[in-house]
Design a binder for these strands. Structure first.
Lengths: 186, 186
DNA sequence: AAGTTCATACAGAAAAAACTGTACAGAGTT
DNA sequence: AACTCTGTACAGTTTTTTCTGTATGAACTT
């Protein structure tokens, strides 16, 4: 994708870059839904169009940003499994390329991020339920307080039920059952 | 939930608040997945436990924050359909309560946020494809450039295919089909 | 109509996050 | 073992976001 080989001219190169840039811009912007920065989104877009795995230095050069930023950006994308580290003998530098299987990216995102949230929420809810039950049984608990506790408990139970459902949704995704409901294109 | 009625004492009130606070903390933190601030998440948690719809002033008082912040926070949650505006005769103030149907909240979130992203991405990809095809047909396009264009086009086609799938997933959610795959608890 | 009470627009302050340059540790080479 | 190269930790700077206080306009009351 560099220009130095004389296989095409400046003008043609610019034309391609212009097209890519617009796509990168939009895709990068919408990647904020995955909780990544705009610039990390752009980095992803850059890697998406790269015709070969890139090094941090190359990214920094293309993005006009510091290598440090590339390092952290790549790490974020790595955590989200949106890019993969690639090994190439001969090169001492780390190489990265995007995960082109976006279905995988999507489900992995849920598997990791949402699962984490579901679990921490469930844990908090269960603890709260225990606390409430303990409190409700104390002798100096007034009628009024018992009522408040009961209402809270009911709300928490409903929330927990929802989280159990969400947990099963994530299971279904991980096991690929979502593709039964909504098939991939051939 | 206020203390001024003498139905319970300071200590009991504190005990309940402590339990709630922990739940609010966790739920609020995980709400960053929905792209909302920590403090907006806390606001949501506050409303979750409120035993009646709240006014901006009440929220501000409980959260120890300005009414302006409450206003913007509530608006964010309203946009996400996580809270509802409630009418109550006699009161001139706006009242808000959380949407307790979290299944609905979840699917609404996808329906609005992800759909928006999918659509804007698809539009960008289609434009890019047209551009590429136009460019590919120009007479001064070298062999090498044609190859580059072809590769880009292929990537974009794959991406578009994914977005069409995602679009159908969102359809399926909106139409409640997700509940066929993963049933709600009774 | 004048007077309240409310929500929010707006500008500025405070806080948080993103980004950079430097420094350094670890792996690889000579 | 000395040297080189690479990725990242860290501190400081810049940019962005969040939050607040004031001001204003709309709706309601008298």
């Amino acid at each position: 994708m560099s220009l130095d080989q004389n296989e095409w001219n400046e003008q043609q190169y610019e034309a391609v870059q212009r097209i890519r840039k617009r796509v990168i811009e939009v895709v990068g912007r919408n990647m904020e839904l995955y909780g990544v920065t705009l610039s990390t989104g752009h980095l992803y877009g850059l890697l998406f169009f790269a015709d070969k795995p890139m090094t941090l230095d190359e990214m920094g050069h293309e993005m006009q940003m510091s290598k440090t930023s590339m390092s952290t950006g790549v790490r974020t994308l790595l955590d989200l499994k949106m890019v993969n580290k690639v090994w190439e003998k001969g090169s001492r530098k780390d190489l990265y390329e995007v995960e082109y299987d976006w279905y995988q990216t999507f489900t992995d995102y849920f598997a990791t991020q949402w699962r984490r949230a579901v679990e921490s929420n469930m844990q908090a809810l269960r603890r709260a339920m225990k606390e409430i039950e303990r409190l409700a049984e104390e002798p100096d608990t007034s009628e009024f307080m018992a009522g408040v506790l009961q209402k809270d408990l009911e709300k928490i139970r409903q929330a927990e039920s929802y989280y159990r459902w969400l947990d099963r949704v994530i299971d279904a995704m991980e096991e690929g059952q979502l593709f039964d409901l909504v098939p991939r294109e051939s």
